[in-house]
């Protein structure tokens, strides 16, 4: 058993409660996925449309477990150095200069690559902290194949060797959450290493609860009204479907405007909080009455 699993003594329901304590409402599937990820332990790969709360899960988990969240945001061109460690070159130069001036024998290069010149990047931090953190590898699909292969290596060993310092490893690996927006297909080898959970858009009732939990200042009536319209919007063929974050923002925006439900008038002026594509705006405007029907 790992440390995080030791600290985590409970079952699936405990996971649900722990996340609810962080204002994150997880369904049975997600709670099971997290439970298994903690107990097996294996990294958890989360996929789903943008805005279903993939990144939020990791934040809520770190909060709930009372450990640090270490986030590695992937981007195009990210490589091992940027994810793992770098040397602090300006300080190295200064040190060399001083050593040369002092002429205290030797050129000081022996301790040039010492711990104090090492700049930790997220992966090295996570490896060192081990079970004392949750490692979030966000939007892995933005990185390239080579980086994915490198990650696969790290995830299977949780150990790296820095030539000048030695091997650094975690006896208890951290809980790892990986998210992907599916802008490209991930390699099967990486997927096989991970548990996989697809997060769907929540159902209407669940979304109302989520709005209530995340934006407690919004009256229940408005929360319901916005959630209902958003769930209908997702039924339209839109280029960019509104996510849960959009529902929350929209409910907040309407609340700020002093509205207590979605109407034809306020839909028109506040639509920009939910719909963020020009073509989608006109699609929705042309079918506004249908969206509001019976609300």
């Amino acid at each position: 058993m790992t440390k995080s699993a030791d600290r985590f003594t409970g079952d699936i329901a405990t996971v649900t409660e722990m996340l609810a304590g962080q204002a994150y409402l997880a369904d049975r599937g997600l709670s099971t996925a997290i439970y298994l990820s903690l107990t097996l332990p294996q990294p958890l790969l989360l996929e789903g449309e943008a805005g279903v709360g993939k990144t939020e899960v990791a934040k809520a988990l770190a909060g709930g477990l009372g450990v640090d969240l270490i986030r590695l945001q992937c981007y195009e061109g990210i490589d091992a150095n940027q994810a793992l460690y770098e040397w602090d070159y300006p300080r190295q130069f200064l040190y060399l200069r001083r050593a040369a001036e002092a002429e205290a024998g030797g050129d000081g290069s022996d301790d040039l690559f010492a711990e104090r010149f090492l700049v930790e990047r997220p992966l090295l931090q996570a490896i060192r902290k081990g079970a004392d953190c949750v490692l979030l590898i966000d939007e892995i699909d933005r990185a390239d194949d080579e980086f994915e292969a490198f990650l696969l290596e790290i995830l299977s060993e949780f150990q790296i060797s820095i030539p000048e310092i030695g091997t650094v490893g975690a006896s208890d690996p951290p809980l790892v959450i990986i998210t992907s927006n599916r802008t490209r297909e991930l390699h099967d080898a990486l997927k096989r290493r991970c548990l996989y959970h697809w997060i769907d858009f929540p159902g209407l009732e669940r979304e109302v609860e989520i709005v209530a939990a995340r934006a407690p200042e919004v009256p229940a009536r408005l929360a319901r009204s916005t959630s209902r319209v958003v769930s209908r919007l997702r039924g339209l063929e839109l280029v960019k479907q509104p996510g849960v974050a959009e529902t929350i923002n929209w409910a907040r925006a309407l609340n700020q405007l002093g509205e207590d439900e979605v109407t034809g008038d306020n839909l028109d002026i506040s639509l920009g909080s939910v719909i963020k594509d020009h073509d989608d705006l006109s699609t929705v405007r042309s079918r506004a009455t249908e969206m509001l029907d019976g609300t």
């Binding site: 699936i12 298994l36 790969l45 599916r182 997927k191 548990l195 996989y196 959970h197 697809w198």
Partner: peptide, 16 residues
């Protein structure tokens, strides 16, 4: 039955 469903889905399937 739910545990069985989710456990299998989370561990065995990795494509939506």
């Amino acid at each position: 039955i739910d545990d069985l469903y989710w456990t299998g889905r989370i561990t065995l399937v990795n494509h939506q």
